[in-house]
């Protein structure tokens, strides 16, 4: 067995130091070492998105990243979404729109949606669907999820409800969407 490595990262706003084997994925580290079991293991091949977390502002599959790669990174997981006394607006809207049944895909959808809204606070339906294309749901279907994200965006834009306690990042998705729109125009 290869020697364990010390890794320092910021997870959900807290500087954290953990020990892991180089062969362990970030998902294994989150779940088995740090006991953050919100991120789910689905396909382990980057197809289903159940393990989506946000690393340095980008959504990615934590099953396709090694834990040792987290050194110096800022990571957000579903555990960091809600404030101690209230749900994140995305979580609230998922409940209101009944956007989940079994719930396995939900943490991944929430993190992809958060990455989208951080970068593009007023997404169109097409933009929402594009941003969620890397997340699979096999029970509810996508319509209610898309509606929840659109509603969350609207609520945030109207300033009725604060987002939660994690701050917003800079915009990559915004530029993605702009690129897509340019392509459509052409």
């Amino acid at each position: 067995m290869a020697k364990k490595v010390v890794v320092e990262a910021n997870i959900n706003g807290e500087p954290i130091e953990f020990l892991c084997e180089p062969r362990q994925s970030l998902l294994e580290v989150l779940r088995d070492v740090l006991e953050l079991t919100g991120s789910k293991e689905g396909c382990l091949t980057g197809d289903c998105g159940a393990c989506t977390v946000i690393v340095n502002g980008r959504p990615l599959c934590s099953c396709l990243m090694l834990g040792v790669e987290a050194q110096g990174k800022t990571i957000q997981t579903v555990e960091g979404l809600a404030a101690p006394d209230r749900l994140h607006v995305l979580q609230q809207k998922f409940l209101e729109h009944a956007s989940l049944q079994c719930g396995i895909c939900t943490p991944g959808f929430l993190m992809s949606a958060k990455a989208l809204l951080d970068r593009n606070p007023k997404p169109t339906e097409a933009e929402i669907r594009y941003a969620l294309a890397g997340n699979l749901c096999r029970c509810t279907g996508y319509d209610k999820i898309v509606r929840a994200v659109a509603d969350a965006a609207q609520t945030l834009a109207s300033g009725q409800q604060p987002a939660g306690h994690l701050g917003s990042g800079p915009s990559a998705t915004e530029q993605t969407e702009r690129f897509l729109q340019e392509q459509e125009v052409k």
């Binding site: 980057g46 980008r58 959504p59 990615l60 599959c61 992809s112 890397g134 990559a172 998705t173 340019e182």
Partner: peptide, 27 residues
């Protein structure tokens, strides 16, 4: 995300844009 890439190499840019999901494209 790079404006030079989009302007001068749109074909390579659209190929990069087609690979997998946002989660995959981030990596």
């Amino acid at each position: 995300e790079n404006s030079d890439m989009r302007k001068y190499y749109p074909g390579l840019t659209e190929a990069a844009h087609l690979i997998g999901s946002l989660q995959i494209q981030s990596r």
